[in-house]
Design a protein around this nucleic acid. Structure first.
Lengths: 365, 365
DNA sequence: CTGAAAGCGCTAACAG
DNA sequence: CTGTTAGCGCTTTCAG
């Protein structure tokens, strides 16, 4: 009756191919379940058995297959993050936090960089959805577009339905009941605080430079600027607000233009440190010194801020912590503690602080 | 006899859970094989059938499961990259290239950052091995350690055995027959070229600063420096070589020390741009101007180089292309063209070029 | 052009 | 403490 033997697996496909849990089990003379147990160490196994299995694994050079594991188990041990540009320090620091926290939770990190392509962002989320990432984190400025919102909203629901979750990082949350977390920082407050710093030094003619024209996350900075002005009884002079791109080039050109137009101002609020770097160059070119002739402040506190000469007074955004918090939020639903009362708040807001360096002084005369 | 029906799947676990290919098949009234075919579009399917399936997928909100796909198929559509520090522009640009090329090949990119922890590097490679990444790219300086080499060598073999491959990026290849690719750039040549530039300007007392003490990739820069000197009949003065850390701090401190010791030099070769940034600060502090009093050159041409004042003359390393080339190399074995003669060379070396900016002038007097 | 069925490698009940 | 046995969701022969 030997011929009746089930013989479920016919032949090993490739003798060179990776060993499987079954090979290990056979070699150690145990069942695959036992091997699984020692691999995962989440179940009691006799010491001697464990030793035999470990030995077999070593001898065979066994490497677990994460996909089989993901398929059979429930979690994939992968988190995904989508950023605009990985070489931009703003995103890089957030990514670093995400990476670190992911690793701390025993996960790997799938990083997607859109290079500013809005469509790519959504496509990456879809891919991450296919990967069944335990959490997907979307970083950075969203455009205020109906259709876009609907698309994100939909993805949030899909993720939620598959036990994962969407985390909006550094941007406002969804204004719907879609299952998504938001991890932001106090953009408006930071902007107001540093504007206050300028006001305290005696400046009232402050030129605001940078940031997108369209309504978006970072407009919050402009809002903070305006609030601080108003709170001290000053009006926002439209001539002193120039929004547009976010780069060094923009800061450079606008500063040049402002000077050449004879615009009256004694300080510049750059919407981020990179813009401020451009401002510095233009100022130097026109022979204006910082901070004697004009004071400058930035935002973000990325490395350039302390490299500029004189070092830039700016708003420190807890970028790395932002990334960590995003992972924690995204994973909060998966953790075993599953205490429904200790529930993660859908929106986390981190504080910002003004870092005073050398680029602000009282206005000349 | 209805009771005899096999009924292979008993119950849907969770009505809210993600739809599977089977749900789609049922809804479209076709077999799962057919659904698979339309999803992959790699097999003829009647137009009407295809339409029905696509409709069913849409209605069900079907999202393929990448893990099931990886398990059943052969490729995972994921490449892994291990770097020291993702916020460091040197690595960030390489990662960007890797990401871009991975996406271009229809893959996602798993990014691991070790924060300089050598042990973590190997651990990440193991994790990537578990992920069955189609290629794993190891970036950056390796230490010259026997045991470490053996470990890398072993991983290379494991990857090779599982149809994947290891790519050493920006570091020398394995000196063994292990299946690994190396994608480097001409470190020595670049260093020699920029040293020549200094020599041509009339400098002979050049202080070399930075780079690791231990033999490692970047020692190649020191080697190039020496070669260029020799080629012009100069000896390498040991007093003018200070190796050690790689950061701004190191550049700053060593420059200060050199000046305070009264060391005789008219130019500084910083082992990378970051070190050069530190050099600038120290020079300014001691009232030495660049390039009037001392000329400075760097290496890598990361953004700081052009931000420094005066802009830094440096060696441009094709960082992003390095990343792209690494992915191409790593994937070369998988591509269908599998032409055994058009075989990827195990070692690719990219050229470097000197970028002349404003930090070099003839020596004073 | 389409369907049936056998797995891919692993985990998780469910018995012992 | 350990083994049996279903699947997880998809791809891929092998037959029509």
């Amino acid at each position: 009756m030997a011929a009746e033997t089930p013989r479920p697996r016919a032949k090993r496909r490739d003798p060179e191919a990776a060993r499987t849990i079954r090979d290990v089990a056979a070699r150690a003379g145990v069942s695959t379940a036992t091997v699984s147990r020692v691999v995962n160490g989440n179940y009691p196994v006799a010491a001697s058995t464990r030793a035999a299995v470990e030995r077999a694994m070593r001898e065979l050079g066994y490497v677990a297959n994460a996909h089989a594991r993901a398929l059979a188990g429930s979690t994939t041990r992968v988190v995904g993050i989508v950023v605009n540009e990985i070489v931009d320090p703003f995103f890089a620091y957030i990514a670093r936090g995400v990476q670190a926290e992911a690793v701390a939770s025993g996960r790997l990190c799938l990083v997607c960089s859109t290079q500013g392509d809005q469509a790519a962002e959504l496509k990456f989320v879809d891919l991450l959805l296919e990967q069944r990432a335990d959490a997907v984190i979307l970083v950075g400025g969203a455009v205020e577009d109906k259709e876009y919102f609907a698309a994100v909203d939909h993805r949030a629901r899909q993720l939620g339905a598959s036990g994962s979750s969407l985390v909006l990082c550094g941007r406002p949350g969804l204004a719907s009941d879609a299952p998504a977390y938001a991890v932001e920082y106090d953009n408006t407050g930071g902007a107001a605080a540093i504007t206050d710093h300028l006001l305290n030094a005696g400046h009232t003619r402050i030129l605001y430079l940078g940031g997108p024209t369209a309504l978006s996350t970072t407009t919050a900075r402009l809002r903070g600027f305006e609030q601080a002005l108003r709170a001290r009884g000053h009006e926002l002079d439209p001539a002193l607000v120039r929004t547009g791109a976010f780069g060094r080039q923009f800061g450079y050109e606008q500063t040049l233009r402002a000077i050449d137009e004879g615009l009256d101002f004694t300080a510049i609020f750059a919407a981020n440190d990179i813009v401020a770097a451009g401002v510095y160059v233009a100022l130097r070119e026109r022979g204006r010194s910082v901070p004697a002739d004009v004071s400058v402040v930035g935002y973000d506190d990325v490395p350039v801020a302390s490299e500029l000469q004189p070092a830039l007074t700016t708003v420190r955004v807890p970028l790395e912590e932002l990334g960590r918090a995003a992972v924690r939020a995204g994973l909060s639903g998966l953790e075993k503690n599953a205490d429904p009362f200790a529930h993660q708040r859908p929106v986390t807001t981190l504080g910002t602080v003004v870092v005073v360096r050398d680029s602000v002084a009282p206005p000349p005369r």
